[in-house]
Design a protein around this nucleic acid. Structure first.
Length: 192
DNA sequence: TTTTGGATGTCCT
DNA sequence: GGACATCCAAAAA
């Protein structure tokens, strides 16, 4: 398995969101290595996307990393959970891809413990769940995804990919209708 | 300095 | 289907 080069992240955000499906997200911690195939993503394309934190070029301490170069990590704390994004687009353009679900591959015992002995299907089928299962934390903010301990490896492009409206952004005006969510068709680990 | 409001998950009914 | 947990940072005061 080869780690994806920086060049991979430099394609258009919508393309990247699709290309990430089937790739393997890996996190190494002191407790061990945990990884999973990405099966669901969402694109957030700044300044014209009302649902994105970076809407209207809003640049703050939190969204700053979205303006950075492609291939960096954008973590965000929502209520009690942490969400994981991959920054995309050239430097200066605030775009990112949210990873919503993965399929467990490696470090199964570790994930089971972190997910409190739930059913395997429920370990990683949601944006807040997968970060807990893999051990991704707010401290990973700004990390370069071509390096350890958090990186993405080349996978197999799935044969069937579905797309549709994004989730959880009902108060985002017209943007909520954009078909910018992508998932592997019929994969049991997508969030819904 | 205080208030407010989430790109969610879990538990309860 | 609905309440609530529990934290950060933006915005208001």
């Amino acid at each position: 398995m080869t780690t994806l080069p920086l060049k991979f992240y430099q394609q258009p955000t919508l393309e990247l969101a699709k290309s990430l499906l089937g790739c393997k997200l890996v996190k190494e911690t002191a407790e061990g290595v945990a990884s999973g195939f990405i099966v669901e993503t969402e694109a957030y394309i700044g300044p014209n996307d009302q649902a994105a934190h970076s809407f209207n070029n809003r640049r703050t301490k939190r969204t700053e990393i979205m303006f950075g170069a492609a291939g960096l990590t954008y973590t965000y704390v929502m209520h009690t959970h942490c969400l994981f994004n991959v920054v995309s687009g050239p430097e200066g353009l605030p775009e990112a891809v949210l990873v919503r679900a993965v399929e467990p591959v490696q470090g199964l015992e570790l994930m089971q413990t972190r997910r409190n002995n739930r059913k395997k299907k429920e370990w990683t089928n949601g944006p807040g769940k997968l970060t807990k299962a893999l051990g991704i934390q707010r401290e990973d903010y700004g990390h370069n995804l071509t390096q350890k301990p958090l990186y993405i490896q080349k996978g197999i492009q799935p044969s069937h990919v579905s797309h549709g409206k994004r989730i959880g952004i009902d108060n985002s005006g017209e943007a909520r209708h954009y078909p910018w969510r992508f998932w592997v068709t019929d994969n049991p680990y997508v969030s819904r």
